Simulated assay, not measured.
Amino acid sequence: MTLSPDAADASVRWVPGQVVANRIAELTAPIGGRLLSCSVYEGDAVDADQELLRIAPTAGASHGAEAPPETADDAQTWVLRAPWQGLVRHVHAPVEGRLVQPQDALIELIATDGIALRFSLEETDALLLGPGDRIEARFSPQDTALTPLSIARAWPEIDPETRTRQFEANLPANLNMAVGLSAQVHISLT
């Protein structure tokens, strides 16, 4: 990583950053059976406890170790629900009628409250920032506006290979960010 000092001010740094997801859930089949319906697709927003899909147990189907009885809608159907508000990252089993086994991966969710901007600072500047400090970010080279953010966490150690310290700033949900998106982080070290 190379810090790019601002030509007009040596206390200003531009560093690369990336949008990351801190909470991802891989939801698995609680029971073996036939997929009756899948009501979500990649990119869909879901609410906590929203129905995602239904499974009809097959004769002699075994329950997974984590199949709680309260997920049973009735004796014939199991309902898989979202554990929290989020975005559907991937649907592994969108084909209705498909047989699934206990613990088969079905859906991956990203929590909307766990999306952050992660960046690193070289060790010479690493102790000059901490949680609560303000930064700004640009998420597109064409974007002239900077988004103000606050550092939420700082790693407790310097990476021995890169000699950098990582930081994260939580992103408001209304920014409509995509995980993996690059950013330029503007830091004033005064």
Score class of each variant (00 low, 15 high):
Thr112Trp: 03
Pro94Asn: 04
Ala72Glu: 12
Gln18Met: 10
Val88Glu: 12
Ala25Cys: 03
Pro102Thr: 00
Ala48Trp: 08
Ser120Tyr: 09
Asp44Tyr: 01
Gln85Ala: 04
Phe119Cys: 05
Ala93Val: 05
Asp47Met: 13
Ala72Met: 14
Leu53Ala: 06
Trp78Glu: 14
Leu53Tyr: 15
Ser39Trp: 01
Glu26Asn: 06
Asp47Cys: 07
Pro30Phe: 00
Glu51Gly: 14
Asp73Cys: 04
Ala105Thr: 11
Leu106Met: 06
Arg89Phe: 10
Ala75Cys: 11
Arg34Asn: 09
Arg118Ile: 09
Val40Tyr: 02
Thr124Phe: 11
Glu26Cys: 08
Cys38Asp: 03
Gln85Lys: 14
Leu129Cys: 05
Ala93Met: 08
Glu108Ala: 05
Arg134Ala: 14
Cys38Asn: 01
Pro131Thr: 13
Gln101Pro: 00
Val40Asp: 07
Val19Arg: 09
Val100Cys: 04
Gly17Phe: 08
Pro94Met: 13
Ala116Phe: 14
Pro102Trp: 00
Thr28Ser: 02
Ala67Ser: 08
Gly33Tyr: 00
Ile110Cys: 07
Leu35Asp: 01
Ala7Phe: 12
Ser39Cys: 14
Val20Asn: 06
Leu53Trp: 15
Ile55His: 04
Asp74Ala: 03
Arg34Asp: 03
Arg34Val: 13
Thr124Asp: 12
Thr28Ile: 10
Ala10Cys: 12
Pro68Ala: 01
Pro68Val: 03
Gly32Asp: 06
Gly132Val: 02
Asp44Pro: 08
Thr124Leu: 08
Glu96Phe: 03
Thr77Gly: 10
Gly60Val: 00
Asp104Gln: 09
Arg23Trp: 12
Leu99Cys: 04
Ala93Gly: 15
Ala45Cys: 07
Ala25Trp: 01
Val20Gly: 15
Ala72Ser: 15
Gln103Gly: 15
Asp73Ser: 11
Gly114Gln: 00
Val40Leu: 06
Leu53Val: 14
Ala116Met: 05
Asp113Phe: 02
Leu52Met: 04
Glu66Phe: 07
His92Cys: 01
Val91His: 13
Ala65Arg: 05
Gly86Trp: 05
Val19Gln: 10
Ala67His: 13
Pro30Glu: 03
Thr112Asp: 12
Thr71His: 10
Gln50Asn: 05
Thr71Met: 15
Gly43Trp: 00
Leu127Ser: 06
Pro69Asn: 09
Gly114Trp: 01
Gly97Leu: 00
Ala56Gln: 04
Leu80Cys: 02
Arg89Gln: 06
Ile24Asn: 03
Asn22Gly: 14
Thr71Asn: 13
Gln18Asp: 03
Ala8His: 11
Asp49Cys: 09
Pro16Tyr: 07
Ala67Gln: 10
Ile115Val: 07
Gly60Lys: 00
Ala82Gly: 07
Gln18Lys: 07
Gly86Cys: 04
Ile24Phe: 15
Leu52Lys: 00
Phe119Arg: 14
Pro16Ile: 11
Ala10Arg: 11
Ala56Asn: 07
Ala116Arg: 11
His90Met: 10
Gln101Glu: 11
Gln50Met: 09
Arg54Gly: 07
Leu27Tyr: 06
Gly97Asn: 00
Gly132Lys: 01
Thr124Met: 09
Ala7Gln: 11
Gly86Glu: 01
Gly17Tyr: 13
Ala82His: 02
Leu36Lys: 01
Gln85Gly: 08
Val100Leu: 05
Asp9Tyr: 15
Gln85Asp: 15
Asp113His: 00
Thr124Arg: 13
Val95Trp: 04
Ala59Ser: 02
Asp74Asn: 15
